[in-house]
Design a protein around this nucleic acid. Structure first.
Length: 880
RNA sequence: GGGCGCUUGGCUCAGCGGUAGAGCAUCGCCUUCACACGGCGGGGGUCAGUGGUUCGAAUCCACUAGCGCCCACCA
C-alpha cells in the first residue's frame, strides 16, 4: 500500500496557509522530537557520516556560509530519507590567529606571555586606546569568552536555516577533545620520526612574528624596481669608477671580452640584502659567466668576497642573467643555499628589523671592514623597506648603482593574513614530513571521489608542487600547544635533543602550566629543570584531524568504528591545498586510509558585478535579514540552484522565486487535500500518465542526488511541480469535483495524493520547512524521517507503469496549451468554452485511441463545449 | 610559465550529437470556485570566433580570443 492510501491520519487544513513562522515552529518540534539525532546503534554500512567544515566563528556571518552549508544539508537530508543514520555534527573553528586578532580588537588587549595570570582581570567595557597587556592565560580566557558568544550566533543562524545537524555532538577546534587528538596524533608522528624539529630557514611574518606554512602563502602584485648593481672581481680591490656609458656596459663588455674584466652587473629587486649576499649564480651553460665560475667577486659597499656559482635554476633571460643569492631573499635563495652548500649571513630579525652586525668578525669578513661598518650602521634597526631606500642612496653615492632603478610590478609572497611581504628567517620549528609521502598522497587523491570531478586537478597540482615538509609550529598563543618540555642544562640552555614527553593518557596538556612527570613545578626554567616548548600548532594541524575529532578517535572506539572513515567532506575550493590536503595527509599517516570517500566542493558567492563579495565594498547582507525577508526555504532554494562547485551570483530575485515556489506548494497541497474523497482505483489515462512521468522523475532524482548533483534534482522536480500545478491540477479540477461521475473523481483524488506525497518528499531536502508543514496536515510523523520515494512505489499505485498513458498526458497538455494560446490571442476569458470542432490541430497528437472525443475522459477534462462560436473559426493560422 | 573552469536571448543559468530552453526582466490578456506572495499568452538568441569530424554540432576534436580561479624557482 502506498502512503497516499493510508487514510488513518485525519486531514487538517489551515484556511489561509502561510510561510511566516514556520522556521521557529518546526525547529522547536524537531528539537523536541530528536528528528536529526544520530542513531549510534546502526552499523557502519547504514551510517552516512559528514565531516562538517567548522566555520571560523571570529569571522562575520556571511551569505557564503548559508550557500555552502545548504548544499551539505540537502545531501544529509537525502541520505537520512534513504534510510541511513546520518552523522552530522557541527564544529566551530575558534583556534588560531583570526580569534586572537578579534579578541585584541574587541577587548583592546594584547597578549604578553611574560606576565603572570591575573584571576581578577576584567576587560574594560569599551576597548582602551592603547592595548592593555594581559597574561597568556587571561588572553586565552578572553578568547574562550568571545568565541562562546560567536558560536551562539552561528548556531542560531544554522537552526533558522534548517540545517539538520545533531546539536548534541558539537565540537570546537580549541576544545579539550581537539587538543587531545591533536597532541596525541602529533606525539605518535614524533615517535615514528615523521614529525621532527629542525633549525632552518622558514617563511616568517614579521608583523605576527610567527612562522607560516607554504599553504598559507599568497602572491600579491607589488610595485618594485630592478636595481642594476656592480660587483667587483676579487683580487682587484673594490670596483673602479662607473662606466661613462649612460646605458651601462653589458655583462659581455664587462667580463666576457677580457678588455675590461673589472666588475659584474647584477640586477636585484632587494638591494637591501646585499650585506646578506653569499654568492652569485648563473646558468651553467651561460657563456657570459662561464669564465667566472669558481672565482670570487666582492659585494659593493660591504666588500665581502662571495663565490660565483653555476646552477640550472638560474635563468639567463632574467635581469642580467646572473643572480644575487642572499640568506634569504626568497624561496629560490633557500634552494640555492641548500644545494650549493652556502653559508648563512642573516641580517633580518624576527621583528623585521636589521640586526646589529660587527664587520670583520668571523662570517662577516670584508676587504674594508671600516667602510662596511659605516654603511651597515645606517641600515641597522631599520625595517626592510626603509633599509632599501637607504642602501640605494649609498650605492648611488659609491657609483655601484648603474643607471636608475627601473620600476616594475611583480608578484611578492605574503602570508595570506599578513600586511607586509614575508621574510625568510632561520629558526627552530616543528615539521611533519610530507615530501616522502607524495606518491601515496597522489594515489589517495585518485581514490577519492570528487564532486565535481575536475576539482581533483587542484589537489594534484598542489601535491606535485610541494617544495618542502609541512611547518606545523607557530609562535602564537591561542592554539594547541606542543605537548613537549625540554631539559634545562646546567648552563641554563635548553637541550633540544632530549625531549620530555607526557604519557598519552595525560593529554591534553599545556606544557607552560603543566609539569612533566618526575619534575616539580619549582624546577621550571631552572638549571637541571625543565622548560616548555613555547609554540602552538598551526591551525591546520588541528583542523586536519576533524574526521578523527568528530569520530571519537581515542575517546569512543565504538563510535569511531561506526563513522570512520567518513563518507563526505564538504568544503570550498579555496582550501583544497590546506584543509583537504592536510586531512588526507593525516589520515594516511595515522590510519593508512582516506578520511572520507567523497568530497563535495562548493564555489564562492559573487556580487552581481562578478566581484567577490566583501565587507569593504559594503555589499554584504547579513544572512539573518535574508532569511527573514525571503524565508529560509527561499534562501535555500537559491543556494541549491547553483551547480556543485560553481560560483554563484548573490541574487535575491532567485530567493523570491524560491519563496514563490514554497507558497505555491502550500496552496497546491491545500487544493489537493480540500476534497480528498471519494478515492479509488486510478484508471483515468491522464492520471496514470502523470504518475508514470512522476515515477521517472523519482528515478532520475535519486540517481542525481547519489551523485551529489542536488541542483539538477531541484530543477527537475520544480519543473515537474509547476506542470503538475498549471496543467494537471487545472485539467482534473472539474473531474475531481464530480463533473464526470464518482469514478473519475476517485481516480483524480487518489492520483493527486500519490503525487503530493511523492513531490513533498522530493522537495523535502531542499525546502524542509514548507514540506514539513504540508506533510503535517495529513501525514503522521516528519517528512524528514519518511522514506525517500521510489519509482516502484509510485508505479504500484497504478498497478504498473503505463507507457501509453504517458503519451496521453503529453498530448493532453499540448492540447491545453493550444487552447490557452488561442483564447489569449482572441482575448477570450479563461473560462470561455471553445468548440472542439474548431481545433483539430490541438488533437492531432492524441493518437488513434483518442479519436472518439466524447468517450475519452481525458479529452473531457479539457472542457470543450459543443457550442460553435463563429469568431473562433478564424481564417488564418493563429500562430503565424 | 603550467593547470582547471567559463563564454547560449537584457540578466542569472540549464541543455552537451538530431529542427534553440527555463526563471527573472519586458509587453499583452485574465479579479478562474487552491493560490493576485496568482494565472495565461507573446516578443526576444546566426549557442565567443575559426577550422575539422559527422548524414547532422550549441553539443565531439583542434586552434584563437576574452573572463575567472588554482599552481609556479617572481634575481
Amino acid at each position: 500500500m502506498s502512503d497516499a492510501f493510508d487514510a488513518s491520519h485525519p486531514i487538517d487544513l489551515p484556511d489561509k496557509p502561510a510561510l511566516e513562522g514556520l522556521e521557529d515552529k518546526w525547529n522547536a518540534r524537531w528539537q523536541e522530537a530528536g528528528t536529526y539525532r544520530f542513531d549510534r546503534s546502526r552499523p557502519r554500512a547504514e551510517v552516512y557520516s559528514i565531516d562538517t567544515p567548522p566555520p571560523t566563528v571570529s569571522g562575520s556571518l556571511h551569505v557564503g556560509h548559508v550557500f555552502s552549508y545548504t548544499h551539505t544539508d540537502v545531501i544529509a537530508r537525502f541520505q537520512r530519507m534513504r534510510g541511513r543514520a546520518v552523522f552530522y555534527p557541527m564544529g566551530w573553528d575558534d583556534n588560531g590567529l583570526p580569534t586572537e586578532r578579534r579578541v585584541q580588537n574587541y577587548y583592546g588587549v594584547r597578549c604578553d606571555p611574560s606576565l603572570p595570570y591575573d584571576p581578577s582581570f576584567q576587560p574594560p567595557d569599551k576597548p582602551a586606546k592603547h592595548p592593555i597587556p594581559v597574561s597568556r592565560p587571561n588572553f586565552i580566557a578572553l578568547c574562550d569568552r568571545l568565541t562562546a558568544e560567536d558560536e551562539k550566533a552561528f548556531e542560531d543562524l544554522w537552526r533558522h536555516l534548517g540545517l539538520s545537524v545533531d546539536w548534541s555532538m558539537t565540537y570546537a577546534t580549541i576544545d579539550k577533545r581537539s587538543q587531545r587528538v591533536s597532541q596525541a596524533a602529533f606525539l605518535r608522528l614524533l615517535a615514528r620520526g615523521i614529525a621532527y624539529q629542525i633549525e632552518a630557514p622558514t617563511l616568517w611574518d614579521i608583523d605576527f612574528r610567527t612562522a607560516v606554512a607554504q599553504a598559507e602563502l599568497e602572491d600579491r602584485e607589488q610595485p618594485g624596481a630592478y636595481h642594476r648593481i656592480r660587483f667587483g672581481l676579487a683580487g682587484q680591490g673594490m670596483a673602479g669608477p662607473p662606466s661613462q656609458d649612460p646605458a651601462g656596459p653589458s655583462p659581455r663588455d664587462s667580463v666576457g671580452d677580457g678588455t675590461r674584466p673589472t666588475y659584474v652587473e647584477v640586477e636585484t629587486t632587494r638591494p637591501e640584502l646585499i650585506p646578506a649576499c653569499v654568492a652569485l649564480v648563473a646558468h651553467p651553460d651561460d657563456e657570459r659567466y662561464k669564465p667566472l665560475f669558481g672565482k670570487n667577486v666582492v659585494t659593493p659597499l660591504f666588500g665581502a668576497e662571495v663565490p660565483v656559482k653555476a646552477h640550472a635554476l638560474a635563468d639567463p633571460e632574467k635581469g642580467s642573467g646572473i643572480a644575487m643569492i642572499c640568506t634569504f631573499g626568497d624561496i629560490t635563495d633557500v634552494t640555492w643555499w641548500r644545494e650549493l652548500s652556502l653559508p648563512v649571513r642573516a641580517v633580518i630579525q624576527p621583528t623585521g628589523a636589521f640586526r646589529p652586525i660587527t664587520w670583520g668578525q668571523p662570517g662577516w669578513e670584508s676587504t674594508d671592514p671600516a667602510r662596511a661598518q659605516n654603511a651597515y650602521d645606517q641600515l641597522a634597526t631599520l625595517q626592510p623597506s626603509k633599509a632599501r631606500a637607504v642602501i640605494v642612496e649609498q650605492l648611488r653615492q659609491s657609483g655601484d648603482l648603474i643607471g636608475e632603478p627601473r620600476p616594475i610590478t611583480h608578484p611578492v609572497k605574503f602570508y595570506e593574513k599578513g600586511d607586509r611581504p614575508l621574510e625568510i628567517i632561520t629558526s627552530r620549528q616543528w615539521f611533519v614530513k610530507t615530501m616522502e609521502f607524495r606518491e601515496q598522497l597522489l594515489a589517495r587523491g585518485r581514490e577519492l571521489r570528487w564532486h565535481p570531478e575536475y576539482m581533483r586537478h587542484r589537489y594534484e597540482n598542489w601535491v606535485n608542487g610541494l617544495t618542502g615538509d609541512w611547518c606545523v609550529s607557530r609562535q602564537r598563543f591561542f592554539g594547541v600547544p606542543f605537548p613537549i618540555w625540554y631539559p634545562v642544562r646546567g648552563d641554563g640552555g635548553l637541550d633540544y635533543a632530549r625531549l620530555i614527553l607526557p604519557d598519552e593518557s595525560r593529554l591534553p596538556i599545556d606544557p607552560s602550566t603543566d609539569v612533566p612527570d618526575g619534575y616539580s613545578a619549582d624546577q621550571r626554567g631552572k638549571p637541571n629543570g625543565f622548560a616548555a616548548d613555547p609554540d602552538v600548532m598551526d591551525t591546520w594541524a588541528t583542523s586536519s584531524l576533524t574526521p578523527q575529532v568528530v569520530s571519537g578517535w581515542l575517546a569512543d572506539d565504538d563510535l569511531f568504528a561506526r563513522v570512520f572513515p567518513m563518507d563526505l567532506r564538504p568544503q570550498g575550493h579555496d582550501i583544497i591545498r590546506t584543509w583537504l590536503f592536510t586531512s588526507v595527509l593525516r589520515a594516511q599517516l595515522g590510519h593508512g586510509t582516506l578520511p572520507w570517500t567523497d568530497v563535495a566542493i562548493s564555489g564562492f558567492i559573487t556580487d552581481p558585478d562578478r566581484k567577490k563579495m566583501s565587507k569593504s565594498k559594503g555589499n554584504v547582507v547579513t544572512p539573518f535579514s535574508l532569511l527573514q525577508e525571503h524565508g529560509s526555504d527561499g534562501v535555500r532554494y537559491w543556494a541549491a540552484s547553483a551547480r556543485p562547485g560553481g560560483d554563484a551570483v548573490f541574487d535575491p530575485a532567485q530567493m523570491k522565486v524560491g519563496r514563490r515556489l514554497a507558497i505555491k506548494m502550500l496552496n497546491a497541497a491545500r487544493f489537493a487535500l480540500l476534497q480528498a474523497e471519494p478515492r479509488g482505483p486510478i484508471r483515468e489515462p491522464l492520471d496514470r500518465g502523470m504518475l508514470t512521468a512522476l515515477a521517472r522523475l523519482v528515478d532520475e532524482c535519486t540517481g542525481h542526488l547519489e551523485a551529489y548533483d542536488y541542483a539538477r534534482v531541484l530543477e527537475r522536480t520544480e519543473t515537474f511541480f509547476w506542470a503538475f500545478c498549471d496543467d494537471y491540477l487545472e485539467l482534473v479540477k472539474g473531474r475531481r469535483y464530480g463533473d464526470f461521475g464518482s469514478e473519475g473523481a476517485a481516480s483524480a483524488n487518489s492520483a493527486m495524493l500519490v503525487a503530493l506525497s511523492t513531490l513533498l518528499r522530493l522537495f523535502a531536502p531542499f525546502l524542509p520547512f514548507v514540506t514539513e508543514e504540508v506533510w503535517s496536515w495529513w501525514r503522521p510523523g516528519s517528512v524528514h524521517s519518511s522514506t525517500w520515494p521510489t519509482a516502484a512505489e509510485v508505479v504500484a499505485s497504478i498497478s504498473g507503469a503505463d507507457e501509453g498513458a504517458l503519451a496521453v498526458r503529453e498530448a493532453t497538455q499540448g492540447a491545453l496549451a493550444e487552447v490557452r494560446r488561442i483564447k489569449s490571442l482572441l482575448k477570450k476569458p479563461t473560462k470561455a468554452v471553445i468548440n472542439k470542432a474548431v481545433l483539430p490541430a490541438a488533437f492531432s497528437g492524441l493518437g488513434p485511441a483518442s479519436r472518439d472525443f466524447q468517450a475519452a475522459t481525458h479529452i473531457r477534462d479539457l472542457h470543450f463545449g459543443d457550442v460553435t462560436e463563429p469568431q473562433l473559426e478564424f481564417a488564418e493560422e493563429p500562430a503565424a
